[in-house]
C-alpha cells in the first residue's frame, strides 16, 4: 500500500467527485422517475406516448453511448445557442460533471419510471378513495397517501437503481471527469502499478455499494415496521 503514498489525497477528491455525481444523478433520476410515472399513469395519450418513448430509448441505448451523446452533443448545442448572442464565441465546453450527471440521471430515471409506475399502481384504490372522501386535495393525496405507500413498494428496486447510478459514475472518467478511475489512470502513467491502482478503485466502489445496500436494507425494515409482529 506504500506504493500509493502521495495518491491518497487524489483518490479522496476523486471519491468526493463520485459522490457529487451520484447525488446530482440521483436527484435527476428521482424527478424523471416521478414525472415519467405520472405521465405513464395520466389520461393524456400524448404524455403517455412521450413517457413510453423516453423509457424505450433510455433503457435500450448503452449508457456509454448516451453519455457520449450528451457530452459532445450538448457542447455543440450550447455553443450554437451562445453564438446567437455572441458570435465571437468559437466553442463552449459543457463541463463533464454536468453532462455525466444529467446523462446518468436520465438513464436511471427511465428505470425508476417503471418502478414508480408499478408502485403507484400497487397502492390500494380504497386508500385514495378514502382520502377523496375526506376531501383532501390532489397534492395532499399525493403527499400524504399515495407517495408514502408507493415509496414502501418501490424501495427494493429503488435500492438497485441507486447501485446502478453508483456503478455508472465510473463511466464519467471516459469524458475526462477527475473521479477515482481517472485518478487511477493518471497515477498509473507515473507509477506503473495498474493492478494495484484499478483494484483500489474496485474496492472503493465495493465499499460504497456496501454502504448503499446496508442503508436500503435499514430503510426497508423501517418502511415495513407497521407489518412487524403481524405475522
Amino acid at each position: 500500500m506504500s506504493m500509493l503514498d502521495g495518491w491518497w489525497d487524489d483518490f479522496f477528491f476523486g471519491l468526493v467527485t463520485v459522490l457529487q455525481v451520484f447525488s446530482v444523478s440521483l436527484v435527476i433520476a428521482v424527478v424523471c422517475g416521478l414525472l415519467g410515472a405520472s405521465a405513464k399513469l395520466s389520461k393524456s395519450r400524448v404524455l403517455r406516448g412521450i413517457a413510453q418513448a423516453y423509457t424505450i430509448v433510455f433503457r435500450g441505448a448503452p449508457e456509454l453511448l448516451v453519455l457520449l451523446l450528451f457530452y459532445f452533443g450538448m457542447a455543440i448545442a450550447l455553443t450554437q445557442v451562445v453564438q446567437l448572442f455572441d458570435p465571437s464565441v468559437k466553442f463552449i465546453d459543457l463541463p463533464p460533471f454536468w453532462a455525466g450527471s444529467i446523462a446518468i440521471g436520465l438513464i436511471v430515471g427511465a428505470y425508476m419510471t417503471e418502478t414508480f409506475r408499478g408502485a403507484f399502481l400497487g397502492v390500494d384504490r380504497g386508500q385514495i378513495e378514502a382520502a377523496r372522501a375526506l376531501s383532501l386535495k390532489r397534492h395532499q393525496i399525493f403527499r400524504y397517501v399515495r407517495f408514502p405507500q408507493m415509496w414502501r413498494l418501490a424501495l427494493p428496486n429503488f435500492g438497485n437503481h441507486m447501485l446502478s447510478i453508483m456503478k455508472d459514475t465510473a463511466l464519467v472518467s471516459i469524458i475526462g471527469l477527475e473521479e477515482i478511475l481517472f485518478v487511477a489512470k493518471m497515477a498509473n502513467s507515473l507509477i506503473h502499478r495498474p493492478f494495484l491502482l484499478y483494484m483500489t478503485v474496485a474496492l472503493i466502489y465495493l465499499a460504497i455499494t456496501t454502504v448503499i445496500t446496508l442503508a436500503v436494507g435499514w430503510l426497508e425494515v423501517r418502511a415495513n415496521r407497521h407489518l412487524r409482529g403481524a405475522r
Binding site: 455508472d168 498509473n188 495498474p194 494495484l196 474496485a202
Partner: peptide, 17 residues
C-alpha cells in the same frame, strides 16, 4: 458491487503488471 468498466480495466490493464 463494482462497475464493469473497472473490472475490465483490472483485467486488461491490471493483470499485465
Amino acid at each position: 458491487g463494482t462497475p464493469l468498466l473497472v473490472q475490465l480495466f483490472v483485467i486488461y490493464h491490471g493483470l499485465p503488471q
